[in-house]
């Protein structure tokens, strides 16, 4: 009687064991792939003249910091530094620096206008809540230097009529993109004469 009871317990135990092996979730022990958090990187690049872009694209700040560091080193006498080399470096740097500052200023100008355009269109666009659909509609916009919208065209549909319509409605409500006024003509022509506008359902 006792034996059979123990036998029964044993068989329960063995079954439990087998079952546990099959069903227990080990995911907490095994490093999971989606534990790696991906952070979306925001970056800004845009078309510029080839000749305007310095061949050496170095971070000015870093470079001058490095130079400072080099000087410090020589003062401390830890390591002898070729002085000629240092002079050559800083001369070259100055040239780069001027070119780059100019470029940066222009870059920033364009960047600000883009941000302003985004802000305004965002404020006008009544985005439909199409839950969890990751779609986008792309338009080409043609502008006059006055900022007047000469034409716009849907070049790539999102596949959702409601979504395309909402973007169309937003564009229909704007006749001028005044944000481009005052921009140097060269940069207007290069960036805003004709540009693409992408409406996305998700900001990823």
């Amino acid at each position: 009687m006792t034996n059979s009871f123990i036998g029964l317990l044993n068989s329960i135990f063995v079954h439990m064991l087998l079952f546990a092996i099959l069903t227990v979730d080990f995911s907490i022990f095994v490093p999971q792939q989606d534990r790696i958090k991906t952070i979306p990187v925001e970056f800004v690049t845009f078309p510029m003249d080839v000749e305007n872009i310095p061949k050496k694209t170095k971070n000015i700040k870093n470079e001058s910091l490095k130079n400072n560091f080099k000087k410090k080193e020589s003062i401390e006498g830890l390591k002898a530094i070729d002085k000629k080399q240092l002079d050559f470096d800083s001369k070259k740097n100055l040239k780069d620096q001027i070119a780059e500052t100019k470029l940066l200023k222009q870059k920033r100008e364009v960047q600000i206008r883009i941000a302003l355009i985004q802000e305004r269109i965002n404020s006008i666009w009544k985005k439909p809540s199409l839950i969890n659909k990751n779609i986008q509609a792309e338009f080409v916009i043609n502008l006059a230097p006055s900022g007047e919208i000469l034409s716009f065209d849907l070049i790539s549909s999102s596949g959702e009529k409601v979504f395309d319509d909402s973007a169309l409605a937003a564009l229909s409500n704007i006749s001028f993109i005044t944000e481009v006024i005052g921009l140097e003509r060269k940069y207007f022509e290069r960036n805003f004469r004709s540009f693409n506008l992408v409406f996305k359902s998700k900001n990823q």
Binding site: P40, E42, F43, V44, T45, F46, P47, M48, V50, Q111, I114, A115, I117, Q118, E119, I121, N122, W125, A167, N191, F192, S194, F195, N196, L197, V198, F199, K200, S201, K202, N203
Partner: peptide, 21 residues
Amino acid sequence: FLIFLTFLALSIEAKLKIEIS
């Protein structure tokens, strides 16, 4: 709000792309 501008390899057709999300 995300600013994405695609720089199409410095080609002449390089076109500014503004994203609205």
